[in-house]
Amino acid sequence: MIVLKNVCKTLSGREVLKNISLHIAENELVGIIGQNGAGKTTLLNTITGILKPDSGFIRTLEKENPAAEKRVLQNLVYLSGNRSQLWEDLKIKDSIDHCIEMYRLDPSTAKKRLDELEEIFEIRSFRNSPPCHLSLGERMRCELVYGLLPQPRLLILDEVMNGLDFSFKHKIMEYFKDYGNKEHTTILYASNQLSEVEQLCRRIILIHQGSVLFDGRTAQIIALFSPCYRIEAVFSGNFPDFEDLPLEKYRLEGDLLTVDYDIHKIETVQILRHLMEKCCIRNIRILKPNLEETIQKIYGGANGKYN
């Protein structure tokens, strides 16, 4: 679906992409994360062909020059939270009509699909309002409908959850989770909201200073970069002795015991067994590191390395 080989790009004297190589298969849902200015948007622009790489090879939807081929663009939708597709002064339904013509959609199929989408994204009541009368979140929902209507094979979403409230975020993420397989669509999902990406994408690509710092399964990046788990236990009785266990650190505050350990050195179950034997546990909680902590850790390390 998408292949990039040694792609480099310099924009106004700054190396924005450095030797990026990627392979994204059909129907994959890939999260793209990185700090501000890491090169996420440049990467997406390169993938769509809006921007040509200085060197290296790109291939999107089987074409090396996607943006120059109308047949490719027919199957590609690029939605961005800060670039509206809708007509500012016109009713939402006029913008949608325009989309139907623009992508040469079959009117009856489009109407059926629009019906479904309006239902899911709950935008039916805005049909006759222009975007300027809607809130940011309502607008974003309309943008998403505009983008999903042509049933693209490649859907690029850049910060599209802007302004959406919690329940809608949840609903839309649930919708996207199995969207790819159901509709045969590859989705690139770029966002600064790491919890969204963690929930939604099994694979993530971490861009840092123009390079791919990590590309793989979300669970893997967490295990790789932040192997520390934590057990919080409320106990009664004697304080257990940990001397023979390879823990990172432990702390006692009143009856709350906090244990940090590296899962590569010791398994959770070993610690639990030890605790159960030595004292009386009343309550226990095991905390896994999340993507956000992991990324913070990586940046800490990476920045150190680059400084």
Binding site: N45, T48, I50, A67, K70, L73, Q74, V77, M102, R104
Partner: peptide, 12 residues
């Protein structure tokens, strides 16, 4: 950046 959105549409 309004021109960029035209660049990804399937029309001249």
């Amino acid at each position: 950046g309004r021109f960029d959105r035209l660049m990804v549409r399937p029309r001249g």
